[in-house]
Design a protein around this nucleic acid. Structure first.
Lengths: 316, 316
DNA sequence: CTAGTTAGTTGACAAAGTCAAATAATTGAC
DNA sequence: GTCAATTATTTGACTTTGTCAACTAACTAG
């Protein structure tokens, strides 16, 4: 279920604090919502923190208390007492580590049983709160949660995954590029129409062994794409290379062009051509690096304002 | 920044518990994340609950403690003591309500000052945690948060908002309908191509006074669309009516068709025609209700399997 | 070997939260 | 109108949860 991030330049400019307000609002909502899932912990004897500690132990065995203190930001003294109680209850056992100051923690059989029981009941309860959502909504929820977590965590995002095209991709590609080029270069409707025609024609005439389209995705978001289409028996054309701003710095453009070249060689083409514009500097750099050369330069006025375009060519 | 919910039927079927796991994972993440925003409350003297109580008072003035107990699910006794302390500190004042058992609460001037200070600092701190996100990411975050809150709250969703088309919409419409008809009726690539061509042509030949496309959206998600295009001087054609499963029950299809009819009358057309398929029962019901009648029925094989289609007509 | 660190524990508290009983006002049944 | 039942809030008597600093034992670097 890919989506695209469409941000029109002349869109109702969102209030500068819209995102801040949205997050604060969500925060109020979610603390209440989590309260429903959360404390009292599912009728078990465990408090929320105890359950979280048990989770850390179960998933990280053997784990030293220092790590728990760090990941859960719990007071070491408090943790120490909780762990003592867990030991008395027979849920955990503490061994001697290589470093004798550490006392690595493991679950006992009873602890494992408790944890898997807890895991089952919380899963069931969470599942119940999602029961009223359709399959599509559940999938959409999972994707949005992952997206949000990735941004809020501030951790580096995973690189986008590249895959061959699927039904539905063409429209998204068209929408994405149309909005981008309009915003970035002021290109008009004619460009949107052109892209739409190229993508429609691609599906209509698709020749599986000799043509392909690759799409890059992350957390359900379309982040890049490229087409390789047959121009003639011996000539292939690379079209509509695009890398979203949110996917810069992963070498994605290079990857996509590389796939086209490899595929074209494999399919027995003798040369690969493409048409691009002088303003598209980063794409041009990639073409040049792969050994493409400019064959012809011409200025046209198809996109609502004069634009210098270039025909590139690579012998395979 | 609309998106579309694309769920291919033969997609990697998500594990049945994917959404549950995603939510549990998010829950672990978010409790930690909120801890950063949260307790200690921004260097102020207030604990998280105190801050939440202050918020409830400030935004709901005058408010009775029962309401706070319900919305925050806090113990009444505990709340009572906190409110007494707030009163002693001069932040709130309690009056006599119409029902003398209640003691409606208001903020004093000092309370207002405290609250707006707190509001400012939490906004600043939240804003700081979002500083590393781009404008697009912030907008995407806000939309996703709203979407998630709406689903998890289980509250009825707001009706989709209808607006005229914008650049980028055409591709999304194409993607959405292509995926839907493939999944629901097994229609193939030819259908996707047809939709792509219709939408591209619409942009190319768009005649503003005599043609229009409306799009329904909610939380940044495309939920429906319809086209009205000129067929000839006196004849308009309604095309590509679509209402997403997530938007059923709002009368959206009826609304969209109604807009087409009103627009066509306004623009001076004498009649409105459309082409649809017999399997599309709910669309047909809408057409019939508006007084459209079937002119001709024919079976074609364009979508990969035989399908009965119908030509409808309405005199304006 | 010594001074400085580090992992974890303990004691002494303070803060947060709970529960049941009490108080005062209101409602509904007769 | 009166009385029992109910409701909003408060109070008392607690338990649980969380904090802070001092402490012990083990490690590390010079």
């Amino acid at each position: 279920m890919p989506s695209v991030n469409l941000h029109l330049p002349d869109d109702h400019a969102p209030a500068p604090h819209a995102a801040t307000d949205a997050l604060r609002r969500f925060n109020r909502f979610y603390t209440r919502f989590a309260g429903v899932l959360g404390p009292g912990y599912m009728g078990s004897e465990l408090s929320l923190i105890e359950a979280r500690i048990l989770y850390e132990i179960a998933t990280g065995q053997p784990v030293v208390s220092k790590r728990i203190v760090e990941t859960l930001s719990v007071d070491p003294g408090y943790l120490s007492r909780i762990l003592r109680r867990f030991t008395q209850l027979g849920w955990i056992a503490r061994t001697r580590g290589a470093d004798a100051r550490e006392h690595p923690i493991r679950l006992t059989a009873a602890g494992e049983a408790l944890f898997s029981e807890l895991d089952r009941t919380t899963a069931a309860s969470t599942s119940a709160t999602l029961a009223h959502l359709s399959r599509e909504e559940q999938a959409g929820l999972a994707e949005r949660l992952a997206w949000i977590e990735a941004r809020l965590a501030g951790a580096p995002l995973p690189p986008p995954a590249v895959r061959p095209w699927r039904p539905g991709d063409m429209g998204l590609i068209t929408a994405q590029q149309a909005v981008y080029y309009r915003g970035a270069y002021g290109w008009g409707d004619a460009m949107e129409v052109l892209i739409g025609e190229i993508t429609s024609r691609f599906v209509r005439d698709f020749d599986a062994g000799r043509e392909q389209c690759w799409v890059a995705e992350r957390h359900g978001e379309l982040l890049g794409s490229v087409f390789l289409v047959a121009e003639s028996d011996k000539v292939a054309r690379l079209r509509l290379l695009y890398v979203d701003a949110a996917a810069r710095g992963y070498g994605l453009g290079r990857d996509l062009v590389g796939r086209c070249i490899a595929f074209a060689r494999e399919a027995g083409y003798a040369e690969l051509v493409l048409w691009t514009h002088t303003v598209l500097a980063s794409a041009r750099a990639i073409y040049a690096d792969y050994g493409f050369t400019i064959e012809k330069v011409e200025t046209h006025d198809e996109f609502g304002k004069p634009e210098q375009s270039e025909h590139w060519r690579l012998a395979l």
